[in-house]
Design a protein around this nucleic acid. Structure first.
Lengths: 163, 163
DNA sequence: AAGAAATAATTCGTGTAGAAATAATATTAA
DNA sequence: TTAATATTATTTCTACACGAATTATTTCTT
């Protein structure tokens, strides 16, 4: 009686997620053509500006993306003159990422650009429903990441302890 | 009173979504190395098998992906011998996609492979919570796709009318 | 101190994913 | 019929995104 129904539900959820992913992606492209930065680039830049002195691997953990992905994004951000790589003197394996004044400016100028699509969508819902959605999603994340342990680099929320 | 809280909520939701996207992607890669098919490939193949005689653009609408993306995925599915392209005689612009016996077999053999990560995650929740999540996500989709109209090719949920 | 193991970043290969441009064909308008 | 417009699929370009392999460097063992 239930397997069919359960299966339908899964498909519904998965379909919704794919469409949300797509909407986020399309928004990212539009952002890129308007502001010159994609969402992942802006997320990384924000991370770099927020945490004062982060290495590449720290950013990796902060934004939940793999090292090779971040390397590419940092390449593009550096090419745009929004941050610079700085090899650590004490440990020459590490690369610190420092935002340029222009980079800081960009982050300041686009405070919640990234969230706009969501922000607008979410604001149209009742407050308790908003909380409901947030908690539901977090439950899904916990379950999904728990299943394949190696797929979850950081379960700890990113703490911004820096100076 | 609320803007700070609201903003935090948006970040929470967005962060969750990014991690879900990532988990889905990682699962897709594992699927690829185990079964030889990625999630998008399986989704497309399922669509082709389900809808008996679909053109490429029909699949586009069915799975909510752009034409160029589908072209690439179909290339790979064809290379694997799971479907064939068949130019329409009546309208030579159209390309029909026909699953091969092997393709049909693959879809039958992997009934809910794609959904497994979700299925397992979802099944651990109470049933009313499952429904809650599904509906919440659908509400988000509706809101997001409503904002940029051109970004939503099909608002109609894919009907699974099959034998 | 020399070698082994661990860590940090990068490179390489593959697969999405979409916009824009293109080519081929169909439909419509004149 | 011919010309203008639509549609359909593809190609090209850019950007994620990851795993695996690689390189450079550090730390740990012995």
């Amino acid at each position: 009686m239930s397997p069919r129904v359960a299966s339908r539900l899964e498909i519904r959820v998965l379909c919704s997620l794919r469409r949300i992913i797509r909407a986020v992606d399309i928004y990212s492209r539009r952002l890129n053509s308007q502001v010159g930065l994609t969402s992942p680039q802006l997320i990384c830049l924000q991370s770099v500006v927020r945490g004062k002195r982060l290495t590449l691997s720290m950013v990796t953990k902060d934004v939940s993306l793999s090292g090779s992905t971040i390397t590419g994004i940092v390449d593009r951000l550096e090419a745009k003159g929004l941050l610079v790589r700085e090899r650590s003197r004490t440990d020459r394996r590490k690369v610190y990422l420092k935002p340029t004044p222009a980079g800081v400016e960009v982050v300041k100028a686009s405070p919640s650009l990234l969230q706009d699509t969501f922000a607008n969508a979410l604001r149209k819902l009742a407050e308790d429903e908003q909380i409901n959605i947030a908690e539901s999603l977090e439950r899904i994340v916990a379950l999904m990441e728990a299943e394949d342990i190696e797929a979850s680099p950081n379960l700890i929320p990113p703490t911004a302890t820096d100076v």
